[in-house]
Design a protein around this nucleic acid. Structure first.
Length: 570
RNA sequence: GCGGGUGUGGUGAAGUGGUAUCACCUGAGGUUUCCAACCUCAUGUCGUGGGUUCAAUUCCCGCCACCCGCACCA
């Protein structure tokens, strides 16, 4: 980061703190790394960003919203792979009690210590006795898993069980698959979204809001049938060129449908969500000139994923991953299915049912019962496991416990019949766009914050989209007397009583100072009640970004702002 | 986690072994016919815990936080 960027960043952070948008959390207690507050203005900003996000996806029509607990039982995250993936193994120097990552200590002695299990690490440490980087002694204590997830106990004492505070919102959508499948009347594709908090006990949170220990995330899981070619209408994006960085590393400028056509993007649904994500980010106020999609290279991609693109946004901290769009295949549903034994599948009806001859081999219980007594059950099981009908009798059959029995023709019953099969169960694939809301908000602020000059003085304004600005409008009487303050008070109150609108009333300081205050936090519209308002019931409306003013009838103002049509008058 | 830097009202800074200035901001009053004007007054600060000292915001140590680099993570 060069000096100019760093200095701008300092000024931006000062403003965000001074005006109550983003502040370090618990600061009066000394603060806590990786935790931030959205302050008096930031709280609503965050809420509106999440609202825009939700509406963007729900408008697609085949997506529903879930809300699941953040406290999650151990087995859920074990099944999902998080317990394994999110762990580092730690050991402690017996002499100086300093803790180190076990795999790092073994880098000199082993070609790939990262791949070792807990027990193998302990074994290797005992064999090689690497020196302590701190005190040079070489005796090591137990190896323990240090998890990046926050551990907790659900319940207390004996009845309690282990759990975590969730590291992502996704798992709740997978564990709810059956309910989603029913909700959508068993018809793919469909999706679920969830907006909420996620928690990761990062070793070193850095760069302000970029790496947090508690963060706002918003994820979408879109379930599809892998055998049906996805059909998406890309006409709106045909002529929109995007910066794409495919896994060969060369940035290209091309439209998303063209990249799909040429095979750079490997799946139509992934391409669809990339396009829709670009639209969303643009609506939120991200400068598309500073957005790119970067494809994960093979090694970076989780082993189950077949294609993964990050939306990266460029600002003070360079290129930062803010959205990940991954084709996760059937990994998640299969993992939970395997772990729980519950069927997490969808039914695919065939257009023409299949007629198949089936031959069923089983035991003739009336004969085998008396003949094999306690072994009769095992015999039945072994016979049914045969993949071909025996042709010669008697023959020797091996049972599950290893014992052998002599089978005669009378013990066996075979049945042939014709069955009609109408379809099959399959595990849907999932495309997952996952959004880091805090990172996006940070970049919205960074892109919106404009430093300029006014009469030779530094002047800053926040060019937030009216859809997410924490305050929609400010109402100010030119002077707080002569009746102007009454009209202004009434307008302010009427605006605040308009659904979805929040107004601020400001009567202190000169009018120029008040405009500056409003511009600094990005209030799109400033209404001034002046002497003329007393005569003709009009007021001036000022556009934040152009400083242009027009006169509007006071009683029309709430509706013009509510309907987002004020901009049309300018 | 390692190395370097920083911590003084809301913000940005100055300064000192004898408990602190300044500007802006904020609030009140006055003034003012639309872009940080002016006048008067007011609120509010040495990150935190130890140590040295008669006395620590200042010197020393630990901790916490922030920034930069490396490592890590995604």
């Amino acid at each position: 980061m060069d000096d100019a960027v760093g200095e701008r960043l300092e000024r931006l952070n000062s403003m965000l703190k001074r005006r109550g948008i983003i502040l370090p959390a618990f600061e009066i207690h000394g603060g806590a790394a990786g935790l931030y507050d959205f302050g008096p203005l930031g709280g609503r900003l965050r809420n509106r960003v999440q609202q825009v996000w939700l509406e963007h996806w729900l408008s697609q029509g085949d997506i529903t919203e879930l809300s699941c607990p953040t406290i999650t039982p151990y087995s859920v995250l074990e099944a999902s792979g998080h317990v394994g993936e999110f762990s580092d193994f730690i050991t402690t120097c017996v002499a100086c009690e300093e803790a180190f990552r076990a795999d790092t200590l073994l880098e000199e002695c082993h070609s790939n210590p990262d791949s070792l299990s807990k027990d193998e690490l302990a074994q290797e440490l005992a064999t090689h006795s690497p020196p302590c980087p701190n005190c040079r002694e070489s005796e090591w204590g137990e190896v323990s898993a240090q998890n990046l997830m926050f551990n907790t106990r659900i319940g207390s004492g004996k009845s309690g069980r282990d759990g975590f505070i969730r590291p992502e919102t996704a798992q709740g959508m997978f564990t709810n698959f059956q309910s989603l499948y029913r909700h959508f009347r068993q018809r793919l594709p469909f999706g679920a979204v969830q907006v909420g908090k996620g928690y990761r006990n990062e070793i070193s949170p850095r760069q302000g809001m970029i790496r947090l220990r508690e963060f706002n995330m918003a994820e979408l899981e879109y379930f599809i049938d892998p055998e049906i070619e996805a059909k998406h209408d890309f006409t709106a994006w045909n002529s929109k060129e995007m910066r794409l960085v495919p896994d060969d590393g060369e940035e290209v400028l091309m439209s998303i449908p063209a990249a799909l056509e040429s095979g750079i993007i490997r799946h139509a649904t992934v391409a669809w969500y990339m396009a829709r994500t670009a639209d969303l980010l643009e609506n939120l106020g991200i400068d598309l000139g500073r957005l790119r999609f970067r494809q994960h290279v093979g090694a970076e991609m989780a082993h189950y994923a077949s294609d993964c693109w990050d939306a990266e946004i460029h600002a003070s901290y360079g290129w930062v991953e803010c959205v990940g769009i991954a084709h996760r295949g059937c990994y998640d549903l299969s993992a939970h299915e395997q772990y729980t034994g519950q069927r997490l599948k969808a039914w695919r009806a065939w257009s023409t049912p299949k007629e198949i001859d089936v031959e069923i081999i089983t035991s003739n219980a009336a004969v085998t019962g008396p003949a094999f007594r306690t072994q009769a059950g095992a015999v039945k099981q072994a016979l049914e496991a045969l993949n071909a009908t025996p042709t010669e009798f008697p023959f020797t059959l091996q049972l599950e416990d290893g014992s052998e029995v002599e089978i005669e023709e009378q013990h066996v019953k075979t049945e042939r019949r014709c069955e009609t099969i109408n379809g099959e169960w399959f595990t849907p694939h999932v495309v997952e766009p996952a959004f880091g809301i805090d990172r996006i908000i940070w970049h919205i602020l960074d892109h919106a914050w404009t430093e300029t000059e006014k009469k030779g003085e530094p002047y800053s304004l926040l060019k937030l989209s009216p859809s997410i600005a924490p305050l929609d409008v400010t109402v100010m009487p030119l002077f707080e007397k002569g009746g102007m303050e009454i009209i202004a008070g009434e307008l302010h109150s009427s605006l605040c009583n308009t659904s979805g609108i929040l107004s601020s009333y400001d009567a202190s300081g000169s009018i120029g100072r008040r405009y500056a205050r409003a511009d600094e936090v990005g209030i799109p519209w400033a209404i001034t009640i002046d002497h003329q308002s007393l005569e003709d019931k009009t007021a001036t409306v000022r556009n934040r970004d152009t400083q242009q003013q027009i006169r509007v009838k006071i009683n029309e103002i709430p509706n013009l702002i509510h309907s987002s049509s004020m901009i049309n008058l300018f």
